[in-house]
Design a protein around this nucleic acid. Structure first.
Lengths: 209, 209
DNA sequence: GTCTATAACAGGATAGAC
DNA sequence: GTCTATCCTGTTATAGAC
C-alpha cells in the first residue's frame, strides 16, 4: 500500500486526460485541477507541459522498442502473430493521444518527429520479418511487390485503426477495444496465406471480434 | 481579368495555410498577414475563424457528395474505378488539413463531427456499391465477411493515406501525390479479383506509381 | 513539496475612424 | 471595405510564502 509519488501521478493523470479529450485540449490547469493539486506544484515537478508529453513519449518508445524486437529468423506461428498484434494494438491504445492528433502533436514537439518516424520504420520492418518467416514456412505466398504494399498497409492500419474506430463507432474516447484492430489486420494478411492456413487464420481472427 | 474578392481570397489563403502548417497552428493574424490585409478586415468578412473553417468544410462536403454519388446498379469497369479513386484522393488532398488533425479539428468544431461521419459512411457505401457491381459482373469473388472488412479498410485508407504518406516520406506538407494512394487502394482490392482481371488491375495500378 | 498570486503572452475578436 | 488600436480571455510559466 505504497502511496504514488506526485510526479508519477502527474504523468498518469496527464496520459488519461490526453487520451480522453486530446492533448491540445488539455491545459496544465486542467491536469492539476483533476489531481487536486496547485498548478504551481505541477510546475515544481515538470518545467513545462512539453516535458510531460516528452516523458510519456519516452515510455511509449520504450514499450514499442521492446515489442518490435522480432527475431530475424525464428519460425513464427499464426498464433504468435495474433498475440503480437494484440500486444501492439494494446500499446497503441495506451498512447492513443499521440495518434489521434498526430500531425499536430509532432509539429509542436518537433524533437519527437524523428523518433516517431523511427518507430514507424521499425513497425514496418517487424511486419516484413513476420511475413518473410511465414513465407519460409510455406504458410504465405506473396510476390515482392505485394509484400511491400501489404507491409505499408499493415503499418498504416496499426497507426490509425484506433483513431478511425473511435471516430466511426462511438463518441467517447475512453475505452478502445483492440480486438477489432487485430481482426482487421488479420484480414489484410488472409488473402496471401496458403489455402490450408487461410481457414485456420480466419477462424482465429473471429476470436478477436 | 477580374480581381478576386477579398472574401474568397481569405478562404483560399486559409485553406493553403491550413494544409501546409495545420489548422491549429494558423492564427487569424497569420492569415491576414499572408494576404497583406488587416486582421480587422478579415473579421469584417468572417465573424470568426470557425466560420472560415466551416465554410471550407461546406466546400469539402459539396465536393464529396458530388463525387460519392455512385449509381446503384451500373456496371462499373476497373478503369472507371481507378478514375474514381483518383478523383477521391485529389479531393481528400485538397482538404487534407481536415484529415491531418482530424480528432482535434472535429473536437473544436463539433457541428462538423456529425457531418464528417455522414460523409465517411457515404464513402463506405460507395465502396460497397462498386464491389457489388464487380461481383455481379464476375470481376470479383468475395465472401460477405471479407467484403465488410475490405470496405472498412478502403474507407480507412482513403481517410488516412495522405497523412500517413506525408508523415513517412517527406517533411514538407506542400505537395501530395495522390498516385501512391490509388495504387495502395487497388492493391487492397487485387486479391479478391478473379485471376484474369487481377492481372489487368495490377498493370493498371502501376500507372499510378 | 506544496501553496497562492501573478506575470507574461498569445490568440480571438470588437470599436470606431477613414 | 479597409485600417488602427485595443480589449478580453485562456494558458503557460514564475516568484515567493509556508
Amino acid at each position: 500500500m505504497k502511496k504514488i509519488k506526485t510526479r508519477d501521478r502527474i504523468l498518469q493523470t496527464s496520459l488519461a486526460l490526453f487520451n480522453s479529450v486530446g492533448e491540445p485540449n488539455v491545459t496544465t490547469l486542467l491536469i492539476s485541477d483533476e489531481m487536486d493539486i496547485s498548478p504551481g506544484n505541477l510546475y515544481y515537478h515538470f518545467k513545462s507541459k512539453g516535458d510531460i508529453v516528452e516523458e510519456l513519449f519516452d515510455d511509449y518508445e520504450r514499450d514499442m522498442v521492446d515489442l518490435l524486437a522480432v527475431p530475424e529468423d525464428a519460425d513464427i506461428s499464426l498464433e504468435q502473430q495474433g498475440f503480437f498484434l494484440h500486444l501492439l494494438f494494446e500499446a497503441v491504445a495506451r498512447y492513443r493521444f499521440l495518434y489521434q492528433d498526430l500531425v499536430n502533436v509532432l509539429s509542436r514537439y518537433d524533437q519527437l518527429q524523428v523518433r516517431f518516424k523511427r518507430i514507424q520504420k521499425k513497425k514496418m520492418i517487424a511486419f516484413k520479418t513476420i511475413c518473410e518467416s511465414f513465407r519460409r514456412q510455406g504458410i504465405m505466398a506473396i510476390e515482392p511487390e505485394e509484400l511491400e504494399s501489404l507491409c505499408e498497409q499493415l503499418t498504416l492500419t496499426a497507426c490509425y485503426w484506433s483513431a478511425f474506430d473511435t471516430l466511426s463507432h462511438l463518441d467517447d474516447r475512453e475505452s478502445v477495444d483492440p480486438g477489432r484492430g487485430v481482426y482487421q489486420m488479420m484480414h489484410l494478411i488472409l488473402p496471401y496465406l496458403e489455402p490450408g492456413h487461410r481457414e485456420e487464420a480466419r477462424l482465429m481472427s473471429r476470436d478477436y471480434l
